[in-house]
Computed example of a mutant assay.
Amino acid sequence: MTRFSPTDAALLFLRVSASVLVLLVHGLPKALHYSQELNAIDDPLHMGKTLTFWFALFAEVACPLLMIAGIATRLAALPILVVTAIALGFVHREWTLFEAQFAWMLLILFGTVAIGGAGRYRIAMRPRAPSRGQA
């Protein structure tokens, strides 16, 4: 039995709450309104709207789900950081700090998760060691 860890509980709260926020505010609207969102998305790196959209969808739906479960957490934080940095640096360069505060907060939240990882409270995805008598 493991003892309660305030640090691990804080990492759990941080990654789950931040992920739910991105999923609800950005990911689900993109997934539910695919055509509208595809037409509205900017293509700042000139990769094509479809590829840009699918990367954003991956970052804002798949990655938050992985992070909620605590699977590949540090790796899953990276696409969210990339999408947010591109939004700030290329798409919304005119935003003031006041207008960009949500994006900056996402960078802080997911940057912290990228550094701190999932913590102990997560779904284990490691293969089990064979029990005695099995090879």
Rank of each mutant, 00 (worst) to 15 (best):
G48A: 06
A9Q: 15
V20W: 08
T52F: 07
I108N: 09
L75Y: 02
L81D: 05
R122A: 14
K49W: 11
Q134S: 14
G119C: 12
A9M: 15
L14Q: 07
I86K: 05
F13V: 15
S19T: 03
I71D: 03
I71N: 00
A77I: 04
A129H: 14
P29R: 00
P64Y: 06
E60S: 08
L21F: 06
L14Y: 10
L109Y: 13
V61C: 11
K49A: 13
L107G: 08
M47D: 05
M1P: 13
A129S: 14
L106G: 05
G27I: 05
F53I: 11
Y34H: 09
A59Q: 12
T84S: 04
L65S: 02
G116I: 13
P79S: 06
I68A: 05
T50K: 15
S19G: 08
T112Q: 11
I108P: 05
A85I: 06
L81R: 06
L11T: 01
L23M: 00
L23D: 01
A129P: 09
G70K: 00
G119E: 09
I115V: 15
A59C: 09
L88N: 12
L109T: 11
L51Y: 12
L78F: 00
F90D: 00
Y121V: 10
N39G: 12
Y34K: 02
A135M: 12
G70R: 02
R15A: 04
L78S: 00
D43T: 12
H92I: 03
T112E: 11
D8Y: 14
G27V: 05
Y121F: 11
K30N: 04
L78I: 09
F53A: 13
A129Y: 08
G89N: 14
I123S: 00
Q101R: 07
L51I: 12
V83H: 02
W54L: 11
P44S: 02
T73K: 06
L32R: 04
P79T: 02
F58T: 04
A103Q: 03
M105P: 06
F90V: 05
A56D: 07
A135F: 15
F90G: 01
W104F: 05
V83M: 07
V91I: 15
P79V: 03
A40W: 03
P6L: 11
P64E: 07
C63Q: 00
P44K: 02
G111Y: 07
H46N: 10
T73G: 01
P44E: 03
L65R: 02
S131H: 15
D8I: 13
Q36C: 00
C63H: 03
A129Q: 15
L106K: 04
D8G: 07
Q101D: 09
A77H: 01
Y121G: 10
M1Q: 13
F53Q: 12
L38W: 06
T52D: 02
R93M: 14
I68H: 05
V22T: 01
D43W: 04
V113R: 08
S19R: 04
A87L: 10
L21E: 00
L45A: 08
Y34W: 15
P79C: 00
R120A: 14
L109R: 08
M67H: 02
E99S: 12
